[in-house]
C-alpha cells in the first residue's frame, strides 16, 4: 500500500437510514475502488463519520470528493494524506501457537505492544491497534506462525493538530 495510490477521506454524514447505502452505491456506480471503510457515530448524534481509503488509480480523488459532495446527506468531506492525518486501525488475529513457539510469539507481542486476549492449547488471540503500516508489519511477522483467523477494522483518521507532539509519540518499533 503506497501513500500515492491510496488516499484517506473522512466524510461527515447525516445520521439517517440508508446513508451508507448511498455512499456505497455511489462508489459502485462510478467505479471507485475502496480499500477500507469504517463507519461510526460522532459526539453529535445527528451525524456519523465514514472513513474510507480510496484507490486513486480507479478514479481521480477530485471526482471522488466532488461526487460524494453531491449526496445531499453528506455534510463535510476531509481529504487526509499521510502527512496531515493521524490514522489508526485495530486488528484481532488468531495465530497458531504450539507451546514450543509461544515465547517467540510473545516476544513479538511485547515489541509491538500488542495484547494477548485469549490463549488456547495450540492457538493464541492477539489484538493490536495502531498505525495501519505497523499493523501490516505485525501481520507479516505473524504470517510464518500460521494465521488462523484475522479481522481488521479498516482505518479511522482525524486531521493532525498543529502541535501534535503528544499525538505522534514515536511508536515501537
Amino acid at each position: 500500500m503506497t501513500a500515492e495510490r491510496f488516499h484517506t477521506v473522512v466524510v461527515k454524514v447525516e445520521n439517517k437510514a440508508g446513508v451508507l447505502a448511498r455512499v456505497a452505491g455511489l462508489f459502485a456506480r462510478r467505479g471507485f475502488n475502496i480499500e477500507s471503510l469504517a463507519v461510526a457515530p460522532t459526539d453529535d448524534e445527528r451525524f456519523s463519520r465514514i472513513t474510507f481509503t480510496v484507490d486513486v488509480a480507479s478514479a481521480p480523488l477530485e471526482q471522488v470528493v466532488k461526487q460524494l459532495d453531491k449526496l445531499v446527506n453528506v455534510v463535510d468531506i476531509r481529504e487526509l494524506d499521510a502527512a496531515t492525518a493521524v490514522e489508526r486501525e485495530l486488528m484481532l488475529i488468531v495465530v497458531a501457537a504450539a507451546p514450543e513457539r509461544r515465547s517467540e510469539l510473545l516476544d513479538l507481542v511485547r515489541i509491538f505492544k500488542a495484547k494477548v486476549l485469549s490463549v488456547g492449547p495450540d492457538k493464541m488471540m492477539v489484538s493490536l491497534s495502531g498505525r495501519p503500516d505497523r499493523i501490516d508489519d505485525f501481520e507479516a511477522l505473524l504470517e510464518p506462525f500460521g494465521i488462523v483467523e484475522i479481522q481488521r477494522t479498516g482505518r479511522v483518521a482525524l486531521r493532525r493538530l498543529d502541535s501534535s507532539a503528544i499525538d505522534e509519540t514515536p511508536e515501537v518499533p
Partner: peptide, 16 residues
C-alpha cells in the same frame, strides 16, 4: 423504491 431509485434521483426520501 428508495433503494431502486437511489442512483437515478438527485435525492430521495422515505417518510416514516
Amino acid at each position: 423504491t428508495t433503494g431502486i431509485t437511489m442512483s437515478v434521483t438527485k435525492h430521495n426520501f422515505l417518510v416514516t
